[in-house]
Nucleic acid binder design. Structure first.
Lengths: 181, 181
DNA sequence: TAGTTCATACAGAAAAAACTGTACAAACTG
DNA sequence: CAGTTTGTACAGTTTTTTCTGTATGAACTA
């Protein structure tokens, strides 16, 4: 790791803080956001002890933090010959991080709702067939079933969107602008 | 509001819970998720007192909760002649909720990072021009600037994506499947 | 105007999350 | 094999968030 001046570190700091704030918005703890921000500017693979000294936090926190970041594919484990400690590097491709993160989030959303949606649907349909189901109740249940039908359409659509994200096809529709900014 | 049986309420409950879990994933508190879930099946506009009795929580919580949901456009205030209490209905179009929610989130991400990114960039460029800047430091700074350039591209792209979401153009690329499910 | 109904600001209590230090297990070293 | 080094599980502490009850002010009513 290149030794660099305080001034350089301070310069980085503005963007590190805003990266951290962004990640906080997405549900990570501020400290983990900050850890990622630091790693983002750190080209060489880092050990838990490196992180500890740069964040000023405990090694335990680094251990759990790096696991969270790994699960989100925001950092990657890197092996290096002759080094016993685990090494990690930040994912530098923000497009990839973005696509991975939201594809994963949305898949989870679909998965969470799938079964309960069907369960509710079936139970409502059973209720609809009951003898003692009043006219008014029938109307209500039909309205509910309509909502669930729309929900199904939504999850199906969301699944399609996830596929476009995972495959990178989304870039065909929203291309990356290569011009100067 | 139609009076409906416990059985009907139980049937709804499975999906209400999973909706709540989803919203928890997106940063809302479980109670607010549950409130939305209840409102989702509630066709008639609700008052804070209706919510209080259905969630079993305090009116204060309903007041603050509904504000959060309103800001996210997940519920809407509805005026009704002769009714003094504020009335609210859930947004039933999940496509709209989804697009609004993420467009807003991503706009906030762009906005959060814009200024700090530029600040870091400027400070790095100033450092680069310093007399006492070593060869090694120069290389490091250039690597940093490269990262910031990529970040700018990313935010520009994200802005484009937000536009497709807000305008609904995204449906031209990922159409809603109208077939039976 | 006085009385009532409503929504929300605020302060404190309860619950949840984040963080740390200790302890231990697994993987290395000589 | 005994001695290190390294990563993580766990329990306890601190911090943050969520929720409630009281108090207040705004909007309506007569």
């Amino acid at each position: 790791m290149a030794p660099h001046s305080d001034e350089l570190e301070q310069a980085r700091n503005a963007y590190i803080s805003s990266l951290s704030e962004t990640m906080e918005m997405y549900g990570l703890s501020p400290s983990m956001g900050r850890l990622f921000g630091i790693m983002f500017f750190h080209d060489e693979p880092m050990t838990l002890d490196d992180m500890r000294s740069l964040t000023g936090m405990s090694k335990t926190s680094m251990s759990t933090g790096i696991r969270t970041l790994s699960q989100l594919k925001l950092v990657h484990k890197k092996w290096q010959k002759g080094v016993r400690k685990d090494l990690y590097v930040a994912e530098h491709d923000q497009f990839r991080s973005f696509l991975d993160f939201f594809a994963h989030l949305w898949e989870k959303e679909i998965q969470i709702n799938q079964k309960p949606l069907l369960e509710t649907e079936i139970r409502l349909q059973e209720n609809l067939k009951q003898q003692n189901c009043s006219e008014e109740e029938q109307i209500q249940i039909k309205r509910d079933l309509e909502k669930l039908y729309n929900a199904k359409q939504y999850y199906a659509w969301l699944g399609e969107l996830v596929e476009k994200f995972k495959s990178g096809d989304i870039f065909n529709y929203v291309p990356v602008n290569e011009d100067d900014l």
